[in-house]
């Protein structure tokens, strides 16, 4: 899966996992902020995203301090997944 495909996959997973009933993948731009402005996610959603990364992409967020940077946008999450998997292999 390349970066663009991963971003599209992530959009669908985020909508499903966070139960964003009135949001479609087209509403989410790769660089849109996920918290506060943008999708308006909250702290519980951040925990759900961590679970999502573990369950669907087998990637763990080892340092909580990295959270704000990793979860800045769908694009930054995709970059984190790609980088973490590259480190593993």
């Amino acid at each position: 899966m390349n970066r663009e495909q991963l971003i599209e996959d992530l959009k669908g997973q985020i909508i499903e996992q966070l139960n964003l009933q009135q949001v479609t993948p087209a509403d989410i731009k790769a660089d849109d902020p996920l918290f506060n402005e943008g999708l308006g996610l909250d702290s519980i959603d951040a925990l759900e995203l961590i679970v999502l990364l573990q369950q669907k992409y087998s990637v763990k967020l080892a340092n909580a301090e990295d959270g704000p940077k990793v979860f800045q946008s769908v694009g930054s999450i995709a970059d984190f997944i790609i980088a973490t998997k590259a480190e593993k292999s």
Binding site: L18, N19, I44, D45, L47, E48, V51, Q54, Q55
Partner: peptide
């Protein structure tokens, strides 16, 4: 049995 959802826990 799996990873429980924080959104359910709250």
């Amino acid at each position: 049995a799996d990873i429980p959802s924080p959104a359910v826990f709250v």
